[in-house]
Design a protein around this nucleic acid. Structure first.
Length: 471
DNA sequence: ATAGGGTTAG
């Protein structure tokens, strides 16, 4: 779906005018026009208009269903996409479901981290004897990777007859986000040896893999090969990856030197990576510097403001914290709230910090108490360092004990059968305390726990995390 | 059609 080559607001206005014209001329009853409208509204990001256009269709044909499902995926509403697919199966029947539908549904599963539903789609494709085309296979690799099921992703990948650069990149990216840096580099080498030409996205994936696993030298070699071996000019994203790689590993001088010798003007991603490195390694001065550069380019970056505030709080500089907060208030910068989601009974349940709206909240509260009791017996003490605002210690413990991932974890322990893996998806990064907490839960409750945060996977088992506490 | 860098106090 090619977006119109204009600014979105103008394009949307044009589309509305066209829509009105179609209604007047009577063409709005044409099935092709109807699904076209759904697809175009979604492509321009207007989910409500797409839904309204879809609702106007008395008996949607397969193209209309697909357009609406793909539309939801396009605007990031994966749960609605999955619910609509359910409805499609009931109202239109399984017989009309084809590859195009499944690829969109798999993309929705990948977005939502809905492994059970993703597996179901895979089974459906197999059950209907569908050929694993490049597109369907890539969507499966992507879905399994983004659900943390690396072996399943690799099994699909290895079984594919045809693969293109999307397939390879998807698999490499999957290994990267699961912290398997060495495997990621190996697969990239295999790609090169098979003569598949990587592109810029592939290099982003490889560099990310190095960053996740702390493979500094390998990352540097890969970066140098972009131009040296492949004759491609590195993108700004690749520079950002390098600063992240150096910075995360604690090589702050290397990160700074790298920025200084960049042949192009650093963009906000570069400064953002440096800001984050400053936070990880408690460097207030560098953090202030990175923030200055960042806000000069992107003055309303909410995450950056919170990062800076956290850097101040880490060094007990409450004046710096309140300065940052008033700056945000003055600019109208608002933090996106954190949430955690968990799939159970074929549905995705969402939790917010301290949220009490879940129908089973009472049970969750009881389970949390039980979890805390058993963890304390094992010597767990809340790590309140990351509750970075100036309140009493007891309040900090309360704040941290209700982080959304802990609520999701408690819910998972209640509803998922003994021995079943608990999989949680988070929109932000997991905090240090929740990470330690989850490690202990995996041991004390003897549960495999898979947590996808906004950047990568954490596979918890028997008190250990696959990230080896490096993130 | 299918892959994509850094980051989020209550």
């Amino acid at each position: 779906m090619q977006p119109l080559l204009r600014d979105p607001a103008t394009a949307l206005a044009d589309l509305r005018a066209l829509h009105a014209h179609l209604l007047v001329s009577g063409h709005a009853a044409d099935p092709h026009v109807q699904s076209g409208l759904v697809a175009m509204y979604a492509a321009l990001g207007d989910a409500a208009a797409a839904r309204a256009a879809f609702a106007e269709i008395p008996r949607p044909d397969v193209v209309a269903w697909n357009a609406m499902i793909a539309g939801y995926v396009h605007v990031g509403r994966s749960r609605e996409a999955l619910m609509l697919f359910d409805r499609m199966m009931r109202e239109a029947g399984a017989a009309v479901v084809g590859e195009a539908t499944l690829v969109s549904v798999l993309t929705a599963c990948a977005q939502a981290g809905a492994l059970d539903q993703g597996r179901w789609v895979h089974g459906f494709a197999r059950g209907h004897g569908m050929r694993v085309s490049v597109t369907l296979g890539t969507a499966l690799v992507d879905m399994y990777s983004k659900c943390g099921a690396v072996p399943a992703a690799m099994e699909v990948f290895d079984g594919m007859r045809d693969r293109n650069v999307y397939t390879w990149t998807s698999a490499i990216s999957g290994l990267a986000m699961n912290g398997m840096g060495t495997e990621c580099l190996d697969l990239f080498k295999r790609m090169e040896s098979e003569g598949i030409q990587p592109n810029g996205v592939t290099f982003v994936a490889v560099l990310r893999g190095c960053s996740m696993a702390g493979l500094v030298d390998e990352g540097r070699a890969c970066f140098d090969s972009i131009k040296g071996k492949h004759g491609v000019e590195p993108w700004l994203e690749h520079y950002g990856c390098m600063v992240d790689l150096y910075g995360r590993a604690g090589c702050l001088d290397d990160a700074i030197n790298f920025i200084k010798t960049m042949p192009v003007e650093p963009h906000e991603g570069v400064w953002g990576a440096l800001l984050n490195a400053s936070r990880i390694h408690n460097n207030v001065e560098l953090g202030k510097y990175a923030m200055e550069k960042l806000v000069a380019i992107e003055s309303e970056n909410d995450a950056a403001h919170v990062l800076l505030s956290n850097i101040y709080a880490e060094s007990q500089d409450w004046k710096g914290v309140s300065r940052t907060r008033s700056m945000m208030k003055a600019k109208g910068v608002k933090k996106v709230p954190g949430w955690s989601a968990i799939e159970a009974d074929g549905k995705v349940h969402e939790f917010y910090v301290g949220g009490k709206s879940h129908p089973r909240y009472k049970d969750i509260e009881l389970m949390l108490a039980e979890m805390n009791r058993r963890l304390r017996l094992q010597g767990y003490a809340a790590n309140t360092k990351e509750v970075l605002f100036d309140i009493e210690e007891e309040e900090k413990e309360n704040a941290i004990s209700l982080h959304s991932e802990k609520l999701a974890l408690a819910f998972g322990l209640i509803v998922l059968p003994e021995g079943a893996e608990i999989r949680i998806v988070k929109n932000l990064r997991v905090c240090r305390d929740c990470h330690d907490y989850t490690k202990m839960i995996s041991k004390v409750f003897n549960r495999g726990i898979v947590m996808r945060d906004r950047n990568r996977f954490h596979h918890f088992k028997e008190g250990v995390c696959s990230c080896r506490d490096y993130w």
